[in-house]
Design a protein around this nucleic acid. Structure first.
Length: 359
DNA sequence: CAGCCGTGGGC
DNA sequence: TGCCCAAGGCT
């Protein structure tokens, strides 16, 4: 039977593994650093946790380095222009995170410091149950229970929880709380997530390398790889549309800023039709549009998209009904879908593509 | 509260 | 290839 003694053993075993095997990450203060007196920087912990929401460590690293180089503290980030931050976030996805990041930074800068309690953190924009617990535990050494997808998987196996996600979430969170130690809660949280990311993986878990193998009910029953069970998800529909790529004579692209909420909210993009079964093809300006061969395919969380790309060159005095010309615009500031459209126009249009510096 | 919200990598 | 998945939050 599981009792306080068993859970203390589990936490201790996991922390021993972490002390030996912890990955070196740019935002992490490892055990050796901590022994040398280094403390986690709440700004860096917060920024990393926002970036890591539903996003892999491998994807986050370069963004984290660029953000912390450009904006070393929360005051610097709070003082940045919205468009600068959105451009730096471009490609990372879930753009509401970037909008909330800006709002949160400004609140914290105004207050003078990050709150150091779960409730104080939870009240900030973009910080939910997971992130509040992670920052409280990692940055402020509070014994909060951090529950992300990794922890849910580890705990579902450790206790052989058969109920499927997401229904089992409350149960898994309760069970996770029974494991959280009073000492080193931040290292424990990171150890649980490291374990889920590197050992207790969704498929082909490496149970032989797991520090909790002896405690794991699913392992004992031989069903670790089958857990956690999940309710099947709905199939994704396919939507279609047209993206209109236009350049003015001076090379300035015709772009528009998308509405602040919703898909790709607040990000720049090419004007286009709606995305549906039967889009209305109205272009943003009458012109000699060339329909490029091929389509741009992109998959969002809940639908597939196939965009046809139309290209035109416009005179210097063109007055489009939608969007505005942006001289010197850097395509890396586009979200990935719009970047794909740009690259497709570049690749598929041959001589038609602009801007061409010719006489 | 279930649907919405990106993207890239692994298998 | 197509599907699954990832250190979730908001409404």
């Amino acid at each position: 039977m599981r009792d306080g003694t068993a859970t203390r053993h589990e936490a201790a075993a996991l922390l021993r593994w972490y002390d030996r095997a912890a990955r070196v990450l740019p935002w992490r203060v490892g055990p050796a650093d901590r022994a040398a007196g280094e403390r986690p920087d709440p700004y860096r912990v917060w920024l990393s946790e926002i970036m890591l929401q539903q996003t892999t460590v491998a994807s986050v690293k370069a963004y984290f380095d660029r953000f912390t180089t450009r904006w070393p503290d929360v005051g610097a980030l709070a003082a940045a222009e919205d468009a600068e931050v959105m451009a730096e976030w471009a490609g990372l996805g879930y753009y509401a995170r970037a909008r909330n990041l800006i709002a949160c930074a400004r609140q914290v800068a105004q207050a003078g410091a990050f709150p150091d309690t779960l409730d104080g953190l939870r009240a900030l924009p973009g910080i939910g149950a997971y992130t509040a617990a992670a920052v409280a535990a990692i940055a402020f050494d509070r014994p909060e229970t951090v529950v992300d997808g990794n922890v849910e998987r580890v705990v579902s196996r450790l206790f052989a929880v058969q109920d499927p996600l997401p229904k089992s979430k409350p149960t898994l969170a309760r069970l996770a709380a029974t494991l959280t130690p009073q000492q080193r809660p931040g290292d424990f949280a990171q150890a649980m997530m490291d374990l889920g990311a590197t050992v207790c993986t969704p498929r082909n878990p490496r149970c032989a390398d797991c520090p909790l193998e002896g405690f794991c009910a699913a392992r004992a029953q031989g069903i670790a790889a089958e857990l956690p069970r999940k309710t099947p998800k709905a199939p994704k529909p396919t939507r279609r549309g047209i993206a209109y790529v236009a350049f003015r004579a001076d090379g300035a692209p015709l772009l528009e800023t998308r509405p602040p909420k919703g898909l790709l909210g607040g990000m720049p993009g090419w004007p286009g039709t709606d995305w549906s079964d039967d889009p209305d093809p109205a272009p943003p300006i009458p012109a000699d549009w060339t329909i490029l061969p091929g389509v741009v395919k992109h998959t969002f969380t809940h639908f597939h998209l196939e965009l046809t790309v139309a290209l035109a060159h416009l005179p210097q005095d063109a007055a489009p009904e939608r969007g505005d010309f942006r001289p010197g615009f850097d395509p890396t500031a586009l979200p990935t879908l719009m970047r794909k459209v740009h690259d497709h126009a570049d690749a598929a249009s041959g001589d038609l593509f602009a801007p061409r510096k010719r006489d």
